[in-house]
Design a binder for these strands. Structure first.
Length: 233
DNA sequence: AATGAATGCAACCGCAGCAGA
DNA sequence: TTCTGCTGCGGTTGCATTCAT
């Protein structure tokens, strides 16, 4: 039997819209099923990943704030590489995002250490912010969700922020309802073969989420100055 | 201005855990 | 109880962009 070939690589705008549409219809579970009924030539896994890491309107965009960075460091020392756990404490951030951030951070740290060591070759290895993190990561303590939440609030307060997330006004996130309304209004999505297929979609969505809904066919353009709600946790 | 290196991020892969048959 | 399929997680890779020379 010839199995239908799965698409891989970057998602196109049309695929995104299609996925959002079907997630609205069937919910963000049953990804295999969703992948099939949507007609997307993607695996359920791939659909889930795209949704979780990118399309989910609850996601924040843009650079991590210093408060978030601080929190990541603290949480990593508590949980180790359990990124999903850490992400759970950072509303609007994904495990992938945090993982990437951490890698970058550790890399920088390593480079700094290297520089230091080349400058002062005789100095013993310093205890970096992270030196104790990995050691404590192996055995995560028993967890009580309410105390964990309090921990996070504390950490953010320590970092100089009193609210979990109301912060950065630039970090706007669309409400799912708004997006879905628009998707609904484009009823025959599956038949929209006239949409241009973008060669790459990864580009500016990161920094300009409204572009997700903007195409040369401004059918998908959302005016972000209208009704979109900010993410308030 | 050109180009090579560094960085950031999206996406894939493999595995483990869980739930339902 | 065992099997099977699905979901979620962590690690890794590859590509696009940015930076430095």
């Amino acid at each position: 039997m010839v199995q239908e070939e799965m698409r891989k690589g970057p998602w196109t705008e049309q695929e995104d819209v299609q996925l959002v549409f079907y997630v609205k219809m069937f919910g963000d579970r049953r990804w295999d099923f969703l992948a099939k009924v949507s007609g997307l030539k993607r695996s359920g896994k791939s659909c889930r990943l795209r949704w979780v890491n990118y399309l989910n309107p609850a996601l924040k965009r843009g650079k991590m704030t210093p408060q978030e960075e601080h929190l990541v460091l603290q949480l990593h020392s508590k949980y180790g590489n359990r990124w999903s756990k850490i992400a759970g404490k950072l509303p609007g951030r994904t495990d992938n995002e945090i993982k990437n951030y951490w890698r970058t951070h550790v890399r920088k740290q390593a480079q700094d250490e290297k520089k230091k060591n080349t400058n002062k070759a005789s100095i013993s290895p310093s205890s970096s912010n992270f030196s104790n993190c990995s050691s404590s990561s192996a055995n995560s303590p028993a967890e009580d969700s309410s105390t964990e939440r309090n921990d996070c609030v504390e950490l953010l307060q320590v970092a100089g922020e009193n609210k979990i997330y109301e912060g950065d006004q630039n970090m706007m996130v669309y409400s799912m309802d708004e997006i879905w309304k628009e998707v609904e209004s484009t009823e025959e999505i599956k038949t929209r073969n006239d949409l241009p297929v973008m060669a790459s979609t990864t580009w500016d969505y990161n920094y300009c989420p409204d572009l997700l809904w903007m195409s040369t066919h401004d059918h998908y353009y959302f005016d972000n100055h209208q009704d979109f709600s900010f993410f308030t946790g």
